[in-house]
Design a protein around this nucleic acid. Structure first.
Lengths: 109, 109
DNA sequence: GCCGGCGGTAAGTCATAGCTTACGGTTAGC
DNA sequence: GCTAACCGTAAGCTATGACTTACCGCCGGC
């Protein structure tokens, strides 16, 4: 359906979470990202490819460097997906709480 | 900082995503969950343990069954975390767009 | 033109995580 | 008390994916 699931899967790796976190503060080249991480530069490159394939980051050429940054559009999709989870879960939670009490009236919401 | 990172890691697995998706519609016992999934019941049990450890689901005893459901409080933490990503990324994105149009200074490091 | 920094890709290794079957514990019903 | 259903845990296997080193292409400076 959506690619939000793939985004979640991509963000499942702690290293990618760290990369995404750093990119949230602004565009950065691969080398700089790798300096602040406990993995090699090629590893960062591979992670960036995964994040780019699912639409969470975008890249642009800047001289001899390649700047990566978070794609707000992609992040919006993930946020919307999480919001739907929230709405459904909240409704189910309230309904379950009522049933647990024994079919009383709505205690308040 | 928070355990939101662990939640993201937990939701990184597609099977757990499917479980969490089903639980969003209401409480369900382990056996019923396993019926609609391509994995065995013990596997579902193990996934539920992971989701419970990070605070995304809660369980309660119901006779001989054990009902699992999404924990709205846990989901709220994850949502808040995503919102922070959103704010930071958006600000950085706009700033980067301006810099790209005007005088190009060193954006990295 | 040559050289140096930057970064993506290939190939290979290794740990981990997800799955299975088997077993034990707990609860409800007869 | 015995049985059956439901579920968590243990043990073990296997595939996947995260990481490394090595290599190559690209762009800018001198």
């Amino acid at each position: 359906m959506t690619n939000a699931s793939e985004m979640l899967t991509a963000l499942g790796d702690p290293t990618r979470q760290a990369i995404f976190d750093r990119l949230s503060d602004g565009p950065q080249p691969v080398g700089v990202l790798a300096e602040g991480l406990p993995v090699s530069r090629p590893a960062v490159s591979q992670h960036l490819k995964v994040l780019r394939d699912v639409g969470l980051v975008v890249d642009r050429q800047a001289g001899t460097r390649r700047l990566y940054q978070v794609d707000p559009a992609g992040l919006a999709i993930l946020r919307t997906h999480l919001d739907r989870f929230w709405e459904r879960s909240l409704a189910a939670f309230q309904q379950a709480a009522e049933q647990q009490k024994g079919g009383q009236d709505d205690p308040g919401s």
